[in-house]
Design a protein around this nucleic acid. Structure first.
Length: 325
DNA sequence: GTAGATGATTGTAC
DNA sequence: GTACAATCATCTAC
């Protein structure tokens, strides 16, 4: 009975109304419905389901036919036997019921294997891991840019997630997944990500410097951050930018400047640029970047908490050369 | 073909 | 509900 219900629900048995399109639609909805190729997979699912349906019905028909034929055959045999010995109607009934039971158990096996086939098809269609696609390069860059520019507290707000999702053309939950994976993998292997962190820190810094240069050229000090610049993220968290600057500079952070005017940070940065002659030359990776943001417990420090910004020796951007691996 | 990278899922803790 | 950690399934570079 359960098998019947399931086959009915999957659109394999029962009246044919689109060959299980409801199940396919439900599966499509459950899979997140992401992407243009979804409809293609949807039709693929339907095609395979209808194939299963067809096989099921063909086999079912065959069994029914065989059952009827066999029943007729046995009935004829019994009729012939009735000439030589008396056969009661009850005996005939019993024989017929035995035959039907046998064929019904065969039918049950058919239903079972059909259910299995549907389950396999469904799991293949539903399991998003099976159709995982890497994000495009630009999306990864945007996400990395945000991550490394908020390294002290890489927990984007809902609004930030939505904005990132829009920019990367992915869903908010994909952004959440990405940050979840990134935080864990970064924490597990800081050394491996150091180069990447350096790159993004430098890029962020250069962006900030460019904005600063543009700002001073335009003589508009009222536009201190990089908001609106094409392709770059709004660096609203000035504390993080400052930490990047501190990492670049190699100096320990003094005082409670976090949250201060970004323009002053950019000035510091420009000073650093002029002193070093560029980010990639003459600076080791350790000078460029430190595993900021992760506290002794392996958790992330909140950039807004005073402990993370007031300590000159342990604050973000001041911990250097922790490159045991 | 294989190793490493990566996006997604699952179970657990808070 | 969110984050973390482990794991899975797939992609990609070699």
């Amino acid at each position: 009975m359960r098998l019947d219900n399931m086959l009915l629900a999957e659109g394999v048995s029962g009246p044919e109304k689109g060959g299980g399109s409801a199940a396919a639609a439900a599966a499509a909805a459950a899979s997140g419905g992401a992407g243009a190729d979804n409809s293609a997979e949807h039709s693929d699912y339907r095609a395979k389901l209808s194939q299963i349906r067809q096989i099921y019905h063909t086999e079912l028909e065959k069994y029914e036919q065989a059952c009827n034929e066999f029943t007729t055959h046995v009935m004829n045999l019994l009729r012939e036997q009735s000439r030589t010995r008396p056969i009661s109607p009850k005996e005939i009934e019993r024989m017929v019921s035995i035959i039907h039971r046998k064929f019904s158990s065969i039918q049950m096996q058919l239903k079972q294997s059909t259910c299995e086939a549907v389950m396999i098809l469904r799991s293949r269609f539903l399991d998003a891991r099976r159709k995982r696609r890497n994000f495009n390069k630009q999306a990864t860059e945007i996400l990395n840019e945000y991550f490394y520019s908020h390294l002290s507290n890489p927990y984007p707000s809902e609004e930030a997630k939505e904005e990132l999702a829009k920019k990367c053309q992915i869903t908010v939950s994909q952004v959440s997944n990405w940050f979840g994976n990134k935080r864990i993998r970064y924490k597990k292997n800081i050394g491996k990500f150091q180069e990447e962190a350096n790159m993004y820190a430098a890029r962020t810094a250069v962006n900030a410097a460019n904005v600063s240069a543009q700002g001073s050229q335009a003589n508009s000090p009222s536009t201190p951050n990089s908001a609106g610049s094409a392709g770059s993220f709004n660096m609203s968290n000035s504390g993080d930018l400052f930490m990047s600057v501190q990492s670049l500079n190699g100096d320990s952070y003094q005082g409670a400047q976090v949250g201060a005017n970004v323009q002053s940070q950019v000035d510091t940065l420009r000073h650093v640029i002029s002193q070093t002659g560029g980010y990639n030359d003459g600076l080791t990776a350790n000078q460029m970047y430190s595993p900021q943001g992760i506290n002794a417990n392996g958790g992330w420090q909140d950039a807004t908490t005073p402990s993370s910004v007031t300590s000159p020796t342990e604050g973000p951007g001041s911990v250097h050369s922790d490159t045991s691996n």
